[in-house]
Design a protein around this nucleic acid. Structure first.
Length: 194
DNA sequence: TTCTTACCAACAGTTACGTCA
DNA sequence: TGTGACGTAACTGTTGGTAAG
């Protein structure tokens, strides 16, 4: 760990052909297209600590803060700026990875739930031997459920084929409303349009 | 008021260096 | 000792906001 502190930060001057981090003197010494190899700065522990501390307070810096921090860290403002840009990018990447993991887990549990429901549907299908039936309230004979309709007003059940006058209290009445109800209930055009 | 231009900051994507297994 | 993976400093190009003309 101590070795990191021993890095000679002086020699690690950054720069390439067009590096904004090079001052004029460095650019000149760079010469005509023969760009010196890019040197990479390694921040000291103290520098990293201060940058992290500053980042916790603010994820962006205004020019004054940038200047002050750069002065404090003995770095160029551009280096501080770059560090903050990269730090924001790392934060975002980490968040995205966490969201990705969360969505994967959701997908897994939903897939499992889907499988379970599919199995349940299969089991229910296997139990069903014929078309669903219900017992007639009058004759207690089994009636095919597909032939039954329920009046939304009186909530009584009748067969589509017809004569329900004995079951519906509104059947046979003579007011418009009641006739309407009766027609709706016992016609082939059910009450959907009502 | 609207349009154009220049400038700047932030970002996404990429490159390249240093380190480590 | 060479090598590939990885972390990250630094770079490039794009975009959106803003002020001045």
């Amino acid at each position: 760990m101590e070795e990191e502190e021993e890095i000679d930060h002086e020699y690690l001057t950054i720069g390439t052909r067009s590096s904004p981090l090079l001052d004029d003197h460095d650019q000149e010494s760079g010469g005509d297209g023969n760009a010196p190899p890019r040197k990479k700065l390694r921040l000291s522990k103290e520098q990293s600590r201060l940058l992290e501390e500053s980042f916790r307070e603010n994820h962006t810096l205004n020019p004054k803060q940038k200047e002050a921090l750069a002065f404090q860290l003995k770095l160029k403002p551009r280096q501080v700026e770059v560090w903050f840009q990269n730090r924001r990018a790392r934060t975002k990447l980490k968040q995205t990875e966490m969201e990705c993991e969360y969505l994967k887990r959701c997908f897994g549990s939903l897939t499992e739930e889907n499988r379970r429901l599919q199995r349940e549907v299969e089991q229910l299908r296997a139990l069903r031997v014929g078309p669903p039936t219900i017992l007639s309230p009058n004759s207690f004979e089994p009636l095919q459920a597909s032939n039954l309709t329920m009046c939304p007003r009186c909530e009584r059940v009748t067969t589509n084929s017809g004569n329900a006058s004995d079951k519906c209290p509104f059947a046979g009445k003579t007011t418009n409303k009641q006739v309407h109800h009766h027609v709706l209930l016992h016609s082939r055009q059910p009450w959907a349009a009502c």
